[in-house]
Design a protein around this nucleic acid. Structure first.
Length: 694
DNA sequence: GCAAGGTC
């Protein structure tokens, strides 16, 4: 009896593929805790089984004692990474089910990585014959119609061009990243006999470079003074401030001359310009947009938003979150979703309003994704959500509804005021029709500036004309959300990896703070690599990889050719690196030490003004905050033993000790002062009891 | 140890 094994990328996709292809209901089975689905189609027996993303990864075949090192091969992820034990049962189950399979279908996401995931499963778990026989389903959403269509129009073989491109990408990233990381650590070891965990990579290093460049701009920035003139008026008992038409005077005497001209007591309204305009609804969320909106609205780091979105997805409340798409194809049946939302207390009236319209169409954005639509709520009713989950869910639902809303109608008013020939401006803004802004609620809140009725020719009494000195500001620092956005615009990393790569830069000690500052170490790593391997620092490497991948996909270059070229190039770079490793190692270590020392400082000692530093007790080996003036000053505070401690650079309003933030795995970050007896902590114990009661 | 990519 012939049996077809369908390889899918992830469990939820497996379920949908089985449901779409089965005649009748697929039978859900379980083996070693892993679900798979049996069903019939056209008289054939079929089994849909799931991978869990990549089940295989590249690994060095021997310990990597020296570099250059190129001896790598594919291995089960669970063997390479002990923390990924979960993937082992998936491998066992697929191997078991492959035993009596006669035909194979690759039904992973239709992109380079998906093609490779299925290929490795077929090659290492089903055998070479399976690779030759396997066919490929291509689809861009997991809707019944599209899945059936893609089954009917299957590619009769695997997409080896995409697979080859994928393998090459993995190998090149490994070669470049691992060898350069090793080269830096080895340089430190050779020069200082100490281990320092240093890293470089095609994505992380250009990202760090962007941050270093901003750091340099800020350091080189010379604030320039400028002057502003403002006119304070009294209109019908309200105080209103108008700004001079020249928003900045860089020449003080110009500002003074303008000020001197304003000696009159009255300002005359010389023009009133009213403009009506529309603001279109926003496109639906992709992951990057959700991350930056959640940072703006709640201050959540992109990594946190990603984790919360993943939890909501697993609770079947929202669609697949790791997407770059801003499209909502009608096949997701958004009318049904909005109908389901109608029964919700919070969103019901918005949903009803939308459903009463005939033209229900989303305002889509330009970005697409080969495998997933934009993020949308499934319409399921949420049960017991945590506070943070509730917030992200609310944001997703409101954004989704907003996308279908009518444009908002706004009115802006520009009032010109003449004071002795000097022109001042008043700006007002009013929402005429809220449209989609109502659905978006607090996330789209538009500040209204309502001006009193002002007719041309009216004279207003002046309270004061003010001249103030200000300074130009340096360009703003990146924050975790804006650097993720910058990476996206430069095509660095993927939607799934960007937040994690930024987190990694923090973990390495290359950067710190929410307003991102690059450490001495981060700057030195970039400088070193700029000197010896500018290729890895440049965003161009990603672009170059992409060209090579394209050439491979078009059959213009072979995988072997591209890999051999990279090896030759790396050989030269790494040799030069090694020649200079003593000086490289010394300067890396120097900046490493400075960064470590600075990282330990939590703030000023309230007793003596010295530095309070994270210190490890010689006796108990536990960490605490101790004063740098020890033994002259014996001031100290206990610290939590788990998690990362981040100095906040501020002091407690109650007790004056430095504030810190504690980040612990799986818990939400919390802020506290160092003093355990501070009044701010008097209710901590009660909180713990309260939580337990619930 | 060290990358970047997929997944939960």
């Amino acid at each position: 009896m012939p049996k077809t094994l369908i390889i899918c990328e992830k469990p939820t996709a497996t379920e949908k593929i089985a449901a779409a292809l089965a005649e009748g209901k697929p039978r859900r089975r379980k083996l070693m805790g892993v679900s798979y689905y049996e069903f019939e189609r056209d008289g054939m027996e079929m089994i849909a089984v799931s991978a869990l993303g990549h089940l295989f990864t590249l690994k060095n075949l021997r310990p990597m004692r020296d570099y250059p090192f190129y001896d790598i091969d594919w291995m089960p992820v669970y063997e390479a990474d002990k923390k990924a034990k979960r993937t082992q049962v998936f491998i066992d189950v697929i191997r078991e089910l492959a035993k009596d399979a006669t035909d194979y279908i690759s039904a992973c996401d239709y992109d380079v990585e998906g093609s490779l995931i299925a290929f490795n499963v077929l090659k290492y778990l089903c055998g070479e014959e399976a690779v030759k026989r396997a066919r490929r389903m291509k689809f861009s959403t997991l809707t019944t119609d599209e899945l059936r269509h893609s089954y009917e129009h299957m590619m009769p073989r695997l997409d080896f061009e995409l697979i080859d491109a994928g393998i090459t990408r993995h190998v090149l990233d490994w070669y470049w990243g691992m060898n350069l990381s090793k080269a830096m650590s080895a340089a430190v070891e050779a020069a200082e006999q100490r281990f320092a965990k240093l890293s470089a990579g095609r994505v992380q290093t250009p990202t760090l470079k962007i941050l270093v460049e901003r750091e340099l701009e800020i350091k080189a920035f010379k604030p320039e003074p400028f002057w502003v003139l403002s006119l304070i008026l009294n209109i019908d008992g309200h105080e209103v401030t108008a700004e001079h038409v020249r928003s900045r005077f860089f020449d003080r005497s110009d500002a003074e001359r303008a000020l001197a001209a304003c000696k009159e007591k009255l300002a005359r309204v010389s023009a009133v310009k009213v403009r009506r305009y529309q603001r279109l609804p926003p496109p639906p969320f992709n992951l990057g947009d959700l991350q930056s909106e959640a940072y703006r609205s709640f201050g959540y780091a992109p990594m946190r938003t990603q984790q919360i979105a993943q939890a909501l997805y697993q609770a079947a409340l929202i669609s697949y979150p790791r997407t770059s798409s801003q499209k909502l194809p009608s096949t997701i049946n958004y009318r049904r979703i909005i109908e389901q939302l109608r029964s919700s207390e919070q969103y019901g009236k918005f949903a009803s309003e939308l459903l009463s319209r005939l033209d229900l169409r989303p305002n889509e954005g330009k970005k697409v994704d080969p495998a997933h639509p934009a993020i949308f709520p499934t319409g399921e009713k949420p049960k017991a959500l945590s506070g943070a989950q509730q917030k992200i869910y609310d944001l997703v639902v409101r954004r989704f509804l907003s996308t279908f809303g009518k444009p908002a109608s706004l009115e802006s008013v520009r009032v010109e005021l003449d004071v002795g020939g000097e022109l001042f401006l008043l700006h007002g803004r009013r929402v005429l029709e809220e449209g989609w802004l109502r659905y978006y609620g607090r996330y789209g809140s538009m500040e209204e500036i309502v001006l009193p009725q002002l007719q041309e020719g009216r004279e207003l009494s002046i309270k004061e004309v003010k001249m103030e000195e200000r300074k130009t500001q340096p360009p703003p620092r990146y924050n975790p959300a804006s650097i993720v956005k910058e990476m996206e615009s430069k095509n660095l990393g993927t939607k799934s990896t960007r937040a994690g790569i930024v987190q990694n830069l923090y973990k390495r000690g290359y950067i710190f703070g929410n307003q991102i500052t690059v450490t001495e170490l981060g700057v030195e790593v970039v400088n070193t690599l700029l000197r010896y391997c500018p290729e890895i620092v440049s965003e161009e490497l990603t672009a170059e990889f992409e060209h090579e991948m394209e050439a491979i996909q078009e059959g213009k270059r072979s995988r072997e050719e591209v890999i051999a070229k990279a090896r030759a190039e790396l050989d030269k770079i790494l040799m030069k690196f090694k020649e200079h490793q003593m000086e490289i190692g010394r300067s890396l270590m120097k900046s490493y030490r400075i960064t470590l020392m600075k990282q330990r400082v939590l703030g000023k000692c309230p007793k003596c003004g010295g530095d309070l530093r994270v210190t490890i007790s010689r006796i108990t080996h536990k960490r605490f905050a101790g004063c740098s003036n020890y033994p002259k000053c014996t001031n100290s505070f206990p610290l939590p033993q788990d998690g990362t401690i981040i100095p906040l650079g501020s002091i407690c309003k109650e007790c004056g000790t430095p504030m810190i933030q504690v980040n612990r795995a799986g818990r939400r970050p919390y802020k506290m002062c160092l003093n355990p007896n501070c009044r701010t902590k008097s209710d901590w114990r009660r909180d713990v009891v309260d939580t337990r009661k619930k």
